[in-house]
Structures are given as C-alpha cells and as structure tokens.
Write a protein that binds this DNA or RNA. Structure first.
Length: 550
RNA sequence: GGGCACGUAGCUCAAUUGGAUAGAGCGUUGGCCUCCGGAGCCAAAGGUUGUGGGUUCAAAUCCCACCGUGCUCACCA
C-alpha cells in the first residue's frame, strides 16, 4: 500500500511540475480520525520548493489519481500533512490473506537468506543461571526468532570457557565441600563459591564414590564433575524457556586450533602490538582507541580480549553476514576494543550488531537483592520460572525495551501471577478457540471457511465498526515483525498484540459470532480465525504458548 | 573524575525513530453477565516528559549545561 501511494504521489508531483527533493515516508497517525496513513513530504519539501507546505500538499492532492475502491478519502490537514483514509474493502481483504497464509502469515523475506549468528547467554558453567541471565537468554532467543521470521538463516550459539581461574576455584570449592562431608573441619574461603549447589555436587560425588576422592587434587575430577552438572542444569533451565542452541562453542578450541596465535601474529604484523612490563599490549590508541590494552599477561595467559577477537574472526570465516552479540551492561567496556582490533585487521565490523541490555534489579521483601554468583544471594532463573511460569518469565523480560533498568518485584510477580499481562493475550486466544468449538457444535464447519484457496465466506458482509477495526489491526502484523527485526526491538510485538487482543475483546462484546444468519456468522468466524492466527503467530515469535483452553 | 545507558501518571513501562490532542497495565473510583469463556468490556480520576537553555514549521525524542540512578573504567571474564 505504501509503495502504491508513493508512486501515485511521485506521479502527481511530476504532473504539477514539482520535484520531490525528499523521500516520501508514511506513518500511522496517532489520532484515528486523521486517517489510516499520513505523509509529511509536503512539510519537508516546502522549503526547497519555496512554497507553503499546505500549498504543496493541496496541489498534489488535486492531481492525485488513486483507486477509490482502496482509498476512500485524501485530504490535507494541519500544517500540511496529507492523510489517507482507506476503504473497508481494503481492510477486510486482510482476512483472506491471513487465512490463506495461516501459520506463515507475518513471515517476510526482508533478510533475504542472510546467514546470521545470534550469540547469547554465553555464561561460564560456574553456577546456575540467574535472573540476569534470563533477560539475556529470552531476549536473544526472541531476536533469533524475529530474524528467522524475516528470512534470515539463523544459528544460535553459546560461547563458554571451561578453563581459567574461575573454573579452578569452582573445582576447589567442590573439593572442600566434599571434605566437609567426610567430616573434616576446615576454613571455607570467602572468595570461593558459596552456593548450595556446590554442596549438592559434592554430595553426589560422595553418594557415588564414598571417600575414594579424599586425596584427589584440586584440579582433578571435582572441576569436571562441577562443570558437567552445572551445564546440565543450565541446559535444562533454558529448555524450560523453550530455548535451544545450535552450537555450544568452547573457547578452548581457539587455542587448540592455533587461532589465538594467528591473531597475535596478525596484530604483530600490523605493527599494533608492543611488549611492556612482561606483557603484550594491543596498541589501540594507534587506531582510535582511548587507551592501549593488555592482550597477553606477564604470566603468558591471554586476557579475554584475545579469544574474543579470535572468536569473531572465526564467525566471519564461517560465513556469517550478520553477527548479533547480546550481553549485559557489565560488558559495556569490553566490546569496543574487540571491534577495534577486528577493524584494524581488515574485517568489516558493520556486520556485527552488539545489543546491550541493562541489568535486572530484583526486589524481594521490599529490598534490593544484589546478585553475585559467588555469594549465594541470588535468585536463580529456575526459581523464577517455578514462581510465575515460563510464559510469564519470557513475557516480562520481553515487555520492556532492553535499554531500561528492569525492576522485577518477585513478591509482586508471585502474588499477581494470575493477573499477569500475559494472560490477557492468552485469554483472547483461548476465547476464540472456545467460540470455534461452540460454532462447530452448532454445525458450522470452520475448516471449510478457507480450504484449498477457496473461500467459504463473504468478508464484505462485515460492516460494523468493531469488525473493521479488528481486521485493520490484524493486517498490521507483518509490518510490526519487520520493524522488530530492523530495530532489534521485540517488545514492539507485545505492544501490537495487546492492541489486537483489545480489538478482539471489544468486537466480542459488541457482536455475537454464532448467530442464525448463517452467512454473516461464517464471515465473523473467518474474522475470529484470522485473529487467532495472528495471536498464535505472535506468540510463536515470543516463545509463549497459545492455549486452546485456560 | 572519564565512558555507556537511563530519568515519562502513585508503581511498572509505551510512544510508529523529529510529527498533529504523550498512551497501556497494575492500583484507585463508578457502571456492565437470561446470551459464543466476566482472566473480559465501558467510563472517570491521574502529566509543566528530572531542571534550565538551544536547534525548526514541529522536540519525550536531536545539541549544550546541571541534578539524579545503574553499569563500567584490570595483566577478572
């Protein structure tokens, strides 16, 4: 529709001897009575044309030729907006389109098969996932969904490191807890992992092997067992949220295949490194960075930057045309160095999209709970799912723009679990399902409304305001999905679906669907089916369930 | 102190990326079930968009200053 209007406007401009020095863009006016679509090109072009905005608009409208069965009214308003009001016929045509496309309605080829990687969660296996990881996980998975719906070929990837100091401490924490189970009195260091899950792992080892491990060294089986159990927990937690990864990428492989060395060599060859105080530095200041950074410590161990750079080079080498990295605001200072190094090695960093989400602040008993994996005072993602359910967890994390600091009041979430906003949407879906069941029990065949490309209903029988409004809302879905993809903001889909649910409930309260006038009933059933389809497709993207009954 | 992000109704957040009268949910107040699901609908109250300047036809949105909050400034990841 936008393309059509644009071409007509360009034609009209030409006919009246004006050129368009600006792009013609459309938007939906906030106020319904202004029309269905609006453009401000006259306001933008006025200066260039040395005319009043309203005159430009007026002239174009006068010479505009538009199919009257699609557009009912065109007028000039305010300082020079041109408003278009569409016909009911146009809105009702959405119903046919939705029923025809079914569960693929909303898909597009915006991404044109672009090979895309979404890297998210990427938590090292040192403890259970926390609420903070939850935001990352749910957001990342949904971004991946949105990109898939817009025609990207997506790989979901989890990057982790099971080597290094953190993991050594983890293993030793388990060892000490194991010793405690054997009855040994000891001082458990404050900077070790305090969580009860460490005790659980130690207990499992004891249950299986008794005291056979009492002389096992810190580096031995304790660490391996801890990693294995914790990873299994992480995987299970993610699965509860319907999150599945295609690849778990181990940082170690970058060392084993010599990729780390290659990066050092490449940076050296580019003259971007120097040695100082026994460490190797990346000369970031030479390529626009604010300060130089260490890439190899004086101990000979690389800092996190080096594997990160190598990992991203691997992403490029593997052929990803779009690389989406998702992490929390605590990593805000780390990625510029990495991008800088990639760029100076000749890689196209435009392909990398870094999405940073702000922290989740947990309130419990009216107090802020500071989260730390090492200290045991964190709320796990599993607990949160137990309290409010997987659908609500996903929905809550997706409702808000990732740029906001999210306040999550656990007590409130628990208490209000039945009045959660997610239910408003799911209720609309379940209600439609119920209507369809009822209609079938009254002898209607909803399956026959649209079968094999043949319509079994007449949408032009729908004339009520609530019917038109609902059809209008439903037609906006593909555009919203595309907007969510281009802006990387899935919360737009939630706002949209709420509007759809609202229009549906309004329609439902104003008009009965299953009525004696058979043809009208069938048309309304088709409208209901279309609404159900849009809701279900939206839920699919968000990763929440579409219940037939509640 | 530097960098990044944020500040919108009592609370949690939106606002089509610079558009026309700033919107939802929760909470508050008042209505609506002979009827396909009342987990719903309708209505009301609630705002100087942190403050002060600037840019233009138009600013919650862009620029500057200040106030406040979070994250971050490692040879930890």
């Amino acid at each position: 529709m936008k393309d059509y209007l644009k071409s007509r406007i360009l034609l009209a401009l030409e006919k009246s001897g004006m050129s368009a020095p600006v792009d013609i863009l459309f938007e939906k006016p906030k106020i319904e009575s202004y029309g269905d679509l609006s453009t401000n090109f006259a306001l933008l072009a006025a200066k260039e044309l040395k005319m009043k905005p309203r005159d430009v608009a007026q002239k174009v409208v006068e010479t505009l030729e538009i199919d009257p069965s699609l557009v009912e009214k065109v007028d000039v308003a305010g300082p020079g907006f041109v408003n278009f009001k569409f016909s009911n016929k146009y809105f009702l045509s959405f119903i046919d389109d939705i029923l025809e496309k079914g569960d693929s309605f909303g898909r597009s080829n915006l991404g044109a098969g672009k090979k895309t990687q979404v890297e998210f969660v990427s938590a090292n296996p040192t403890g259970p996932l926390t609420v903070g990881h939850g935001r990352n996980a749910v957001f990342g998975d949904t971004i991946a969904n949105v990109l898939q719906w817009t025609g990207h070929v997506v790989t979901r990837e989890y990057y982790f490191n099971n080597a290094g100091r953190q993991m050594r401490v983890l293993g030793d924490s388990v060892r000490l807890r194991y010793k405690e189970i054997l009855g040994e009195e000891l001082q458990f260091p404050e900077d070790y992992y305090q969580g009860n899950y460490i005790r659980d792992i130690a207990q499992h080892l004891y249950d299986e092997q008794g005291d056979k491990l009492k002389n096992e060294p810190a580096e031995g089986g304790f660490k391996e067992r801890a990693e294995q159990e914790i990873f299994e927990d992480i995987r299970k937690t993610l699965e509860r949220l319907t999150i599945k990864f295609d690849i778990f990428y181990n940082e170690n492989s970058l060392y084993e295949t010599g990729k780390i060395k290659e990066v050092i060599t490449a940076l050296e060859a580019a003259g971007l490194t120097y040695d100082k105080e026994g460490a190797k530095w990346f000369k970031a200041t030479a390529v626009g960075g604010d300060q130089d950074k260490v890439i190899v410590k004086s101990t000979g161990e690389p800092t996190y930057r080096l594997p990160d750079i190598a990992y991203h080079i691997e992403k490029f080498r593997r052929g990803f045309e779009l690389v989406v990295d998702i992490f929390g605001s605590d990593h805000i200072a780390t990625y510029p160095d990495v991008l800088l190094a990639l760029k100076s090695l000749g890689h196209d960093t435009e392909k990398v999209k870094v999405l940073i989400h702000q922290f989740v602040t947990i309130f419990q008993n009216g107090e802020v709970v500071k989260m730390s994996t090492r200290k045991a005072n964190f709320i796990t993602l599993d607990e949160l799912i137990d309290w409010v359910g997987a659908d609500a967890v996903r929905f809550f994390f997706l409702m808000r723009n990732i740029g906001t600091h999210l306040n999550f009041d656990v007590d409130l979430a628990k208490k209000q679990s039945e009045e959660n906003p997610v239910f408003y949407l799911q209720y609309a879906h379940a209600r439609i399902a119920s209507i369809i069941r009822f209609a079938e029990s009254e002898g209607f065949s909803t399956g026959g409304l649209y079968a094999g490309g043949k319509k079994g209903f007449d949408s032009t029988l729908l004339k009520e305001k609530e019917e038109i409004d609902l059809a209008k809302a439903l037609g906006g879905f593909p555009e919203v999905v595309e907007a969510a993809a281009t802006t990387f903001e899935p919360h737009r889909i939630i706002g949209y679906l709420q509007g759809v649910a609202e229009e549906f409930h309004r329609f439902y309260h104003a008009h009965r669907v299953v009525i004696p006038e058979r043809q009208l009933a069938e048309s309304r059933l088709a409208l209901c089916l279309a609404a159900k389809t849009v809701l279900a497709n939206g839920f699919k993207i968000l990763g929440i369930s579409a219940p037939e009954k509640m």
